[in-house]
Simulated assay, not measured.
Amino acid sequence: MKTGIGRLRKFDAVLARSGRLTLTKTPVTKLVREPKMPKSSRNLPTSGYAIMIDGLVKTEFATRDGVEIAARDLKRRFPMLQVKIYDAAAGQIVA
Rank of each mutant, 00 (worst) to 15 (best):
E68T: 09
Y86V: 00
F78A: 14
S47K: 15
P35H: 09
G55T: 02
R42N: 07
A50R: 00
G66S: 08
V57C: 02
I51E: 07
A71R: 06
A88V: 08
Y49F: 08
A88T: 09
K39H: 06
G48S: 08
F78I: 12
R76S: 11
P27D: 00
P27K: 14
R42E: 02
F78T: 12
R72Q: 02
V67Y: 01
P45G: 05
A88Q: 06
D73N: 14
D73P: 04
D54K: 05
A89I: 10
A70E: 01
M37N: 14
T29V: 15
D65H: 13
A89S: 12
P27L: 09
I85Q: 04
I69C: 11
Q82T: 13
S41I: 05
L81D: 02
E68Y: 01
E34R: 10
K30I: 07
L31A: 14
M80I: 15
L74N: 06
T26Y: 13
T26E: 00
Y49W: 08
I53S: 01
P38R: 08
A71G: 04
L74D: 03
V83A: 04
P38D: 02
A71N: 05
P79C: 09
I85V: 08
M52V: 06
Y49I: 01
D54I: 07
Q82W: 12
K84M: 08
R72D: 06
V32Y: 04
S47E: 15
S41L: 03
Q82P: 05
Q82N: 11
Y86C: 00
V28D: 00
R77S: 14
Y49N: 05
A88L: 09
D54V: 06
P27F: 09
F78N: 13
K36A: 10
R64C: 06
S41A: 07
K30M: 10
V67M: 05
L31C: 11
T63F: 02
T46P: 09
I85N: 00
K25V: 12
D65W: 11
A62I: 12
S41E: 10
K58N: 07
P79L: 10
P45M: 10
R64A: 01
M37G: 13
R33K: 15
Y86T: 06
E34L: 11
F61I: 03
R33A: 13
K30F: 10
M52P: 04
P35Y: 08
F61Q: 01
P35M: 06
L56I: 12
V28S: 14
R33D: 14
E34F: 13
